[in-house]
Design a protein around this nucleic acid. Sequence first.
DNA 1: TAAGGAGCTT
Length: 574
Amino acid sequence: MTPILLNLPNQLSFESNVAQTLSLLERCTNMMELKQIHAHIYKTGLIIDPIPVSRLLTFSTSLDFGNLIYARKVFDRISRRNTFMWNTMIRGYSNSNEPKEALFLYHQMLCHSTPHNAYTFPFLLKACSRMSALEETQQIHAHIIKTGFGLDIYATNSLLHVYAISGSIKSAHLLFDRLPHQDIEALKLFHEMQVASIKPDNVALVSSLSACAHLGSLDEGRWIHTYIDKNGIKIDPILGCVLIDMYVKCGDMDEALKVFRKLEKRSISAWTAIINGFAIHGQGQEALDWFMKMQKAGIKPNSITFTAILTACSHAGLVDEGKLLFKTMMTDYKLNPTIEHYGCMVDLLGRAGLLLEAKELIEKMPLNPNPAILGALLNACRIHGHLELGKQIGKILIEVDPAHGGRYIHLASIHAADGEWDQAVQVRSRMKNQGVSKLPGCSAISLNGIIHEFLAGDASHPQMDEIYKMWNQIAEKLQQDGYKPATGDLLLDLDDEEKERAIQQHSEKLAIAFGLIRTKPETTIRIFKNLRVCEDCHTVLKLISKIYAREIIVRDRTRFHLFKEGKCSCRDYW
DNA sequence: TAAGGAGCTT
């Protein structure tokens, strides 16, 4: 620790002492230095000047190295506390583990009749948002109006945010509709912004692009990208990161790479988004190459980067590489594995058939297994037919995660695979009794900017007759190619013919039939599915890509499949 | 001063 004050001359005028002290505070990087400066402030009488004292508070409440208890002691001893000081303390608590304390302080502030200013409310509301404290938010809302800050854009935006995240969407909407300057985030509002000729700032763009990434709306995302370019909007690190992520999640790796190459500064999150891109496209080797490239560029991987690279290994079956990376993450990079990393490892080992090793890892890890980890193991049991272990895990899972429909389905299908139809039916009825419903399979295809959705067995699409006709044609060609429906995945206790019919109505089959009708030969068909693609649909899509000479890109729950010339990019490992 | 990002299971 450097004793920084040694360099300070002893005899200084009051003014130059203030100036020097402020500049020291500016450069202060740890509590030890801060305490020295604090002592100096006392010793030289600067404690009567509100400016150095305020600055002292700012630094001792700082997120990086501050110490709120210390700050509070300083604060409590100040005889004349001004609005800035109260605000600083409120902000400190709003970012801490005790956001409630911010509200207590506010109460005291009112008792002291300290006036508010425009900064007070955003900090206070941040504390409310951390606690999802709706009632307090409403009280503060009243204060905002009473104290004349009802038109303040920061206060109002903060209010909007708290209402939105604490579930009071109605209040948020009411507020939004009355806003004098409508600048809000979310994709559908983005269009309204365009119509109202309001320029979106980077935050609005990030939110909109992030929505595109989740929805897989490539057209929309491209449009926003063009907007950014045309208007010369500066791509800050976060905007760059989501722009890449949007292309990644919409299945356009080439464009994601183009954006990456054009970035002025390649932040860790931009690299991670690219590595994650290769991971979810099943390109494990490329992910590893880019992981190396990143380090050569002098960027150190963080915890999220490791999740991405481990995901890459698990999707591509790179077991040895994954194990090694997991080890070096701890030894070389000194990062403590989180539950997510263990999740990746269990998935990696489990998919590769190393069930026992996966189970051991769960037993040995210093964290409590969460439903995700158990779910990964259960999935592995299903893939590799470890029915007994699967039943054990499945039982635990529906205990710890009783509201999750997928878990019951999994357990039921494992019973079914073992021929235990009674048990399967029992699990199903338990699910029904708990009021849990199964998420229906849904596939979407976007044509000329219009999204067409198909649910399994759903006949509501206006062109359904045509679609079924097309499907029958496809089925005929598939049969000529020697295809037999793989009904093993189905848990229903139906006879084979009924199973065949059920499987033919899977949403991705309806979507592909529709896609073949409505798109020109040779164009790529993109389908988005909310669940994992089933075994049979996977086989069918491979065959269709060969028979109809089409590239088909399917984004399922977790990854992309590129079907081309009868093969899938996942190499049937998914 | 408020609001934005990359991640395991389904």
